[in-house]
Design a protein around this nucleic acid. Sequence first.
DNA 1: GCGTGATGCGAGCCAGAGCTCGCTTTCAAT
DNA 2: ATTGAAAGCGAGCTCTGGCTCGCATCACGC
Lengths: 197, 197
Amino acid sequence: MRKTPTQARSRATVERILEAGRQVLVDDGYETFSTNRVAIAAGISPGSLYQYFSDKSSILDIVISRYWDDVSERTASALALQASTVGTPAIRSVADALLAGLEQDPALLRVLTEELPASRNRDRHAALVNRVRDLTAAYLRAGSVGLTRPDPQITAWVLVVAMENIALRWVLDRPPYPREAVVEEMVALTAGYLARV
Amino acid sequence: MRKTPTQARSRATVERILEAGRQVLVDDGYETFSTNRVAIAAGISPGSLYQYFSDKSSILDIVISRYWDDVSERTASALALQASTVGTPAIRSVADALLAGLEQDPALLRVLTEELPASRNRDRHAALVNRVRDLTAAYLRAGSVGLTRPDPQITAWVLVVAMENIALRWVLDRPPYPREAVVEEMVALTAGYLARV
DNA sequence: GCGTGATGCGAGCCAGAGCTCGCTTTCAAT
DNA sequence: ATTGAAAGCGAGCTCTGGCTCGCATCACGC
């Protein structure tokens, strides 16, 4: 942020820029994401844009942050809701929440994960994974489920990384499997993993 | 390919360009990957480069293809070797092969998966996933394992997508879990999923 | 040896995009 | 109403990097 807007008008302008940034990203893609395009989409001039943002990257950063914060919030809160529940219903609703979080804005998700270099999302994404992993590890340690694996930390990590990719690939690649079927597979995968053999 | 090299000298030049391309990608990263840099690294002039490659993208394409073909070949053949084996030993060696395949060239893997837009890898990567998924589905249908899940196709897809991300994240993020432990978790995850409950 | 096509050279063209700067317009406080 | 700061404008500067083109050099068949 180069200059903090004080008047209502300029605050609205900053907001318009960010919305336009998201729009250009979704409509035109990352490759053609240019400050001039953003300015046009926001209905302002390039010069105005650079009064509030130091460079193109900083606009992107905020758009990206907003998205991941949103997903993170949704997912973690859904997970927290189930902290006291046990068994497959708990797993099912977490799997569902994961899918729902990613289904929130698939167009932006696609651009962020497929067109941007993954390193752009790295920190934000790692934060999300760690957050969910720790919640999961705590849940496992709480012992509501019989612990069959030696290290809850690894187990939680494995679960999160596996589930995330299943959900992500299903949302983005749209394989011909119905949503409920995928949820059930996610439940079975998790339940089988955690159940004593 | 703009012109097919006939003499030995030019065939060597094309090879030098491709090796330089890989080198520049690994050393300098995707952002700064420029045709001029590749030319310098290959010890030739930009003009010579454009005699054989139509544009910058086509050099990249070949470098990327070569990498994924290599990984695909290694993984699929390791999987085929285990087609007749059953039980956790079979699962274990497939998990190991998956890790080994990705560990082959971690530097290039990192650039390809973290710096390039994922869409650059999309086709090649999808081919790999499909190939392994179909092998897995056939394996499941062969009935060596008791089928507890309704649809082998979904089950195979879930397994491949899950396993791949576990292996990928472990290789790239180097979480503090020993390799053998991760392999065992992958085995447990798969075995629990497929075992009758 | 000689000539013709293959190979190689590298300064530079050119399009595109990030960003600037001098100017105008709008706002709000006095 | 006045005035100074805040906000906005947009032509264009500048730099980067993909790519070219006219020329030099090399290699192989006769």
